[in-house]
Amino acid sequence: MLPQDRREFLKLSGMAGVAFASALFPGQPTSAQAADFHFIQFSDTHWGYKGPANPDAEHTLEKAVATVNALPNQPDFIVFTGDLTHTTDDAAERRARMRRFREIVSALRVKDVRFMPGEHDAALDKGEAYKEFFGAPYYTFDHKGVHFIALDNVSDPAAKLGDEQLTWLAADLKQRNAEDRIVVLTHRPLFDLMPSWDWTTADGAKAIELLMPYRNVVVFYGHIHQEHHQNTGHIAHHAAKSLIFALPAPGSQPKRAPLQYDAASPGQGLGVRDVAMAPTAKLTEIGVAGA
């Protein structure tokens, strides 16, 4: 596994972000069959978190919604790759947080919004409350010729996809051609990014094995609260920033404790991502206005 070439980063003018120019689909880098479109990835909003890593936690999500609503080129749809809410042992409070989260994001101008659980949402009750509010924890959808697969590697508290979901994934992939464009959405990394920090999926290698025969697969995930790009073979895995606090680079310090909040730069390390699905596909990291 090799980190992707960082030289491919390009500064964008006019946007509070950095673009990662990447052939998202290595099998078809310049011959897109689908119409161009873009979507926004939100991740790790942790609604309900209270702590020193983000004293502005009550407002960060609303600011992110406003930032995306202000984009001149609105996305076709928006995905949330898990940890919508911060965990709590209190089942009633868990539901209250999900309800309030849903109210806040209902202000998004784009109404096609896809949710996924993180372990903070789903691991303590095996996804029971999550499903009440947001529906199935794993599913597929298609958009302009691209097949999207949302996987759930968090409802099992031991961070497994499980045999049932892997069987479902295998059956879905059997309906694809080797050249089809496939986007996989997960919360945790499917590969062993940093097992000693629990940045892995127990049986993620089985999912990657199922995906390997397909030449145009890209994975977007969250969980690690930072931008990160790594390949397993031809499959690129892109981690997103969070909207609550940043975590350290893998292995850069002894513990995976949140990076210290900087009052002079409160939004540092936070943001959303724009993913342009086109022959000149690129990822653009967008900071949160006012955060």
């Binding site: 042992d89 691991a123 968090v154 508290p157």
Partner: peptide, 17 residues
């Protein structure tokens, strides 16, 4: 050699090692 809890157990799980 680090050991850790890998069964999510609540707010604080990430520090259980």
């Amino acid at each position: 050699i680090v050991f850790l809890c890998d069964v999510f157990c609540g707010d604080g799980h990430e520090e259980m090692e």
